[in-house]
Write a protein that binds this DNA or RNA. Structure first.
Length: 423
DNA sequence: TCTGGGGTCCTAGGACCC
DNA sequence: TCTGGGGTCCTAGGACCC
C-alpha cells in the first residue's frame, strides 16, 4: 500500500536566515511580513516566549527587546531559492512529488524489501539537511490528512523528527489526543460548530457518518472524515495545476491618499501579475481591482470597494492590463480617504491556442509585436530582477516603505554573496 | 504610529434559456 | 382560484490553506 509522506521545513524562514548566520543558532529569531507588520515565522525560542503566529510586532516590542529577539524583514527571493533546493533534493527520491507550498511537499513512498518506510524517511531527512542545511520534519500516513497530522506530531518528537500514523492502534490513540481544530481542513468556524455538536477530538469526528457530516457542512468535511479513517480521498497532484486567478496586492504603511502614488503602485502590481500570467502562458479576460481603507482604524471613515471589467479581447500584455486597471482606479478612488491596501486580480483565463472569436479590428502584426516585447522584458527581468519596468510605475517605489531588517540576497545577487574569511 | 499576501474549493442564488 | 419544469452559466461570499 502506498504511504503518503508530508515533508515540512522546520520554521522555514527562520531556518533560511540562520543558514547564513550560524551565530543565530540557539537564539531567538523571528521573520516579519511585508511592511514589517506581523510575525510570520518564529524560532523555537520565540515560540517559548508565548509569541503567537501573525502577532503584530508593535504589540510584542517590549518582549522582543527584553529577550533580544533578532528580527528579519521577509526576504522572499532567498526563501524561494532555498525552497527550490529543498524540493529538488526531494525529487531525487521519488518522481511522485507534489509541491504543496513554499516549505511543504507531499510524496508517496513504496515499501521496499531493503528499507522500511520509516528508514526511507530518515534517509530523506538526513539528505535534505546535508544538501541544503534546512531541517525538515516528516509525517507518514495512509492519507494526506493523516500524514499532515503525523507531521504535527513529528514536530514535537524532537529527537527523530519523523512520525508514522499508519498503524490503526497508534492512530486511534493519537486521534483521541488531537482537537478537531488541529485537523487539516477543519478551520475555526467548522471547529466551533463541531464542538457545539459535542465532536471535540479528531477521534470523535472520525466516528461520524460522512454523509451526515456532509449534510451539515460541505463535501470537503465529509472527505476529511473518510481520510481520518484511512480511506484515500485526496490524491497526489504531481503536475501543478494552471492557476485560475492571479492576485498581486500590497498594503501601504501609513496608507495612501495620493491618487498618483496609488496608480504607480497599481501599475507595479499589473506588471508582476502579467509576468505570472505569461509564465503559465495564459491570457486574461477579466481584471478586478480592489482598494481598502485601514480595517483596524475606527477613527477614519472606511471605504472598501472593488470593480471588474471584461476585456474585449483576452490578453497577456502588461500595458493593456495597466491601462484598464488605471481606468478602474479612477472609478473607485474617492477623494479624502486614506487607502491602506490595493490589489489586482486577473481571472477568466484562456490558453493562446484556444480557438476564439476573432476581432475584426485586431491588428495581428501589433499583437505579435506585443508578445515579443513582453517576452524581452520578462527575459531581462529574470536575469536582472526589477531592472525593466513601465514609466507608469514611477521611477521610485515611493508607495513602499523600505524594510528595516532585510538580510542580503545571499543566493540571488552577486554583490550580496556571503563572504568567507580564512583565518 | 505600528495588524501580510496569494491561493483553492464549495455553495447559494440570480439570470437566462427552451 | 388557478401562472411549469429542467437546465446552464455566472458571481459573490464563505471557509479554508500556507
Amino acid at each position: 500500500m502506498p504511504c503518503f509522506a508530508l515533508v515540512d521545513c522546520n520554521n522555514f524562514y527562520v531556518s533560511c536566515e540562520r543558514l547564513f548566520r550560524p551565530d543565530l543558532h540557539g537564539k531567538a529569531v523571528a521573520v516579519l511580513s511585508n511592511n514589517d507588520g506581523c510575525i510570520i515565522a518564529r524560532s523555537e525560542e520565540v515560540k517559548a516566549l508565548g509569541i503567537q503566529m501573525a502577532t503584530p510586532v508593535h504589540q510584542v516590542m517590549p518582549l522582543i527587546k527584553q529577550h533580544r529577539v533578532q528580527l528579519f524583514s521577509s526576504n522572499y527571493s532567498l526563501y524561494g531559492d532555498l525552497s527550490n533546493r529543498v524540493m529538488s533534493t526531494l525529487a531525487g527520491f521519488t518522481p511522485h512529488l507534489e509541491i504543496y507550498s513554499i516549505d511543504e511537499s507531499f510524496l508517496t513512498l513504496q515499501t521496499l524489501p531493503t528499507q522500511s518506510i520509516k528508514a526511507q524517511a530518515q534517509t530523506i531527512r538526513r539528505t535534505v539537511q546535508r544538501h541544503t542545511g534546512i531541517p525538515v520534519s516528516i509525517g507518514l500516513g495512509p492519507t494526506k490528512t493523516l500524514a499532515k497530522l503525523a507531521n504535527k506530531i513529528a514536530k514535537q518528537e524532537k529527537t527523530t523528527g519523523i512520525f508514522n500514523l499508519s498503524c490503526p492502534i497508534d492512530r486511534a490513540c493519537y486521534l483521541k489526543l488531537t482537537a478537531v481544530k488541529n485537523i487539516w481542513g477543519i478551520g475555526s468556524k467548522t471547529a466551533k460548530k463541531l464542538q457545539a455538536l459535542k465532536i471535540i477530538t479528531a477521534w470523535d469526528l472520525a466516528q461520524q457518518d460522512p454523509e451526515w457530516i456532509r449534510s451539515l457542512f460541505t463535501v470537503t468535511a465529509a472527505r476529511t472524515v473518510r481520510e481520518l479513517n484511512g480511506f484515500t480521498c485526496l490524491t497526489l497532484d504531481e503536475v501543478p495545476a494552471t492557476k485560475q486567478q492571479i492576485i498581486c496586492s500590497r498594503s501601504f504603511k501609513g496608507g495612501l491618499r495620493d491618487h498618483r502614488l496609488l496608480a504607480q503602485a497599481l501599475s507595479h502590481f499589473c506588471l508582476r501579475a502579467g509576468e505570472k500570467l505569461r509564465i503559465q502562458n495564459s491570457l486574461t479576460s477579466r481584471i478586478t481591482l480592489f482598494i481598502n481603507t485601514h480595517p483596524f482604524d475606527k477613527n477614519t471613515p472606511a471605504d472598501n470597494r472593488s470593480a471588474s471589467l471584461k476585456l474585449p479581447q483576452a490578453t497577456q500584455d502588461s500595458r493593456v492590463i495597466i491601462a484598464q486597471a488605471k481606468k478602474l482606479l479612477t472609478q473607485l478612488v474617492q477623494p479624502g480617504y486614506r487607502y491602506h491596501q490595493c490589489g489586482i486580480v486577473l481571472s477568466h483565463f484562456d490558453h493562446p491556442t484556444t480557438p476564439r472569436q476573432a476581432d475584426l479590428f485586431t491588428d495581428n502584426a501589433h499583437q505579435s509585436h506585443a508578445r515579443k516585447l513582453m517576452k524581452t522584458i520578462d527575459t531581462i527581468n529574470q536575469r536582472f530582477p526589477n531592472r525593466l519596468t513601465f514609466a507608469a510605475s514611477g521611477l521610485q517605489t515611493a508607495w513602499q516603505a523600505p524594510p528595516q531588517w532585510l538580510s542580503p540576497h545571499y543566493t540571488t545577487q552577486w554583490q550580496e554573496l556571503a563572504h568567507v574569511k580564512c583565518i
